[in-house]
């Protein structure tokens, strides 16, 4: 296990292009009522422009915490997180988050106002430009008919589309997606994945996407960081740019799926054995 990691890193990292996001030896800890939990331990990875970078792992591997770290909601106790060479210190509109929860939209604003609001309060653009961008992205996520609806009138899938449109309209350096489709039903989820890939084809944004579904990671991601739990550590970094929904039944897709599955599953067996012994 420990021999595979440096080898994988050595052949994958492109030394010439500067990374957009550089996470370097990051350890993140948070406090619960009576524990200090180490969520990730010395995690390093680099995201390059237009990457669809996926953080994949079972629950408890600190992938969401890592995303919060990149979002600036948590400071690392060790290591650095840098965006375009700047150390991240606090939340900011240059990294737009899309959350799993449907209540991330401001309920007192319509779909259009929700998309406009961050552009205006962050001072990214003036009113006219913001309005233009808002329409463009509402159109891109097929919500033109619902532009003046309030969030409580929308279905879960529509709300997530608004959240994605809102994040994309900011034209931020990187989109941080925290299991955005996890709370959707299977059919909607599949459709949303397709739409997201289509949007990426259009705009070529950079995203950091957290999921616990191997399938979603392979379909959505161009590169997958596989993490092990308790505490979260890097297990592998794999390429998945060649796969979309069309390859889902295919042999190569299955092979990658199984490879990741074994990686994660081996951990679980090991863990069970440890627990059994103690």
């Amino acid at each position: 296990m420990s021999t595979a990691l440096p080898a994988a890193n050595a052949e994958m990292v492109d030394e010439h292009a500067p990374a957009l996001l550089a996470v370097d030896g990051v350890t993140l800890q948070y406090k619960t009522r009576d524990h200090l939990v180490t969520a990730t331990y010395r995690v390093s990875f680099q995201v390059h422009p237009s990457d669809r970078f996926v953080l994949l792992g079972p629950s408890g591997c600190g992938k969401s915490t890592l995303l919060k770290g990149v979002g600036g909601f948590m400071a690392p106790v060790e290591g650095t997180i840098r965006l375009k060479g700047q150390t991240i210190e606090r939340p900011g509109p240059d990294r737009m988050m899309v959350f799993q929860e449907f209540d991330q939209l401001l309920p007192w604003k319509t779909v259009r106002e929700n998309i406009l609001f961050p552009m205006l309060v962050s001072g990214r653009c003036n009113r006219a430009e913001a309005a233009e961008r808002a329409w463009a992205y509402i159109d891109k996520v097929n919500l033109t008919k619902f532009a003046d609806a309030y969030p409580h009138m929308l279905s879960g899938g529509m709300k997530q589309r608004v959240a994605i449109a809102r994040a994309m309209a900011m034209e931020a350096d990187i989109l941080l997606m925290d299991e955005p489709f996890a709370a959707l039903d299977a059919l909607t989820r599949r459709k949303m994945q397709e739409e997201l890939l289509q949007l990426w084809d259009d705009v070529r944004f950079t995203m950091l996407f957290v999921t616990h579904s191997i399938e979603e990671a392979i379909i959505v991601g161009s590169r997958i960081l596989v993490m092990s739990p308790h505490p979260g550590q890097v297990k592998a970094e794999l390429n998945a740019h060649q796969f979309s929904h069309d390859e889902q039944g295919g042999g190569e897709f299955q092979a990658l799926h199984n490879r990741i599955h074994n990686m994660l599953f081996a951990e679980r067996i090991e863990e069970e054995r440890l627990h059994g012994r103690s």
Partner: peptide
């Protein structure tokens, strides 16, 4: 989530 969304806007 709403708090984080607000902070995310700066």
């Amino acid at each position: 989530t709403l708090r984080m969304a607000g902070q995310n806007y700066g």
